[in-house]
Design a protein around this nucleic acid. Structure first.
Lengths: 112, 112
DNA sequence: GCTGTCGTACGATCGTGGTCGTACTATGGG
DNA sequence: CCCATAGTACGACCACGATCGTACGACAGC
């Protein structure tokens, strides 16, 4: 079986209803995580973990991806030994309408 | 001279062009500061420092107001021995259009 | 002038979070 | 079967920031 994609979810994601502004802001306030989110947002289709331009170690990367996952900003699932990342645009829109777009626009304006 | 209001600015405020997303997010990510900003936003006219519903000491309050000031979220000026606080709506709109509204709306949705 | 109030300054504490290294697991390919 | 690769787990370290107490300064009013 080569690609059972989209299965193998990870048990860390909050429900859309349990997404809190506190965690969203904490997640987005870190430069490394903000960069990750922007890279996901900029890419068509889900992004593999290895393809990110990160300035920290793999273990630190794991930490940041966990924070993003637990905040509800991203969803992760395994494909083989690798992971894919996707923004939870719909869930975020439901929880805090317009917030994600405003944050991404602000980040774009900041760093181009 | 009783009220030379609006004079006596404090030398800590960044120019509108120097407002960074990093500082805005750091400022807004703290629950106490978020509460302060929401109280200012909810009030007509500028708000005196003493009238806030804060759960921390005065010295801690001073710290939070300084962070808010230096982030560019609020402007402060003295009136006699007391201080007035105002949101820098225009400057924020210029720096990051729509961001403040989205943040306030999200905070309202979170806490009612 | 004295006193109360508003806010600041400074130092101390202490928790939390970002970072890394190393060791480990698991999957996929030759 | 063996090895390379992707990611995790765990522990250590360290810096920063939230908090407080106390002491200080500034203005208003009596």
């Amino acid at each position: 079986m080569t690609a059972q994609a989209a299965v193998d979810r990870i048990g860390d994601h909050p429900d859309a209803a349990d997404i809190t502004l506190q965690r969203i802001l904490e997640a987005f306030a870190d430069p490394v995580r903000r960069s990750i989110v922007r890279q996901i947002a900029r890419t068509e289709g889900d992004t593999a973990c290895g393809t990110f331009d990160i300035s920290v170690t793999r273990s630190t990367g794991t930490h940041h991806f966990r924070v993003l996952r637990q905040s509800g900003l991203i969803r992760q699932y395994y494909v083989g030994t690798s992971k894919r990342n996707a923004l939870r645009r719909d869930d975020l829109e439901q929880a805090f309408p317009g917030l994600l777009d405003a944050l991404l626009a602000a980040a774009d304006r900041e760093d181009g």
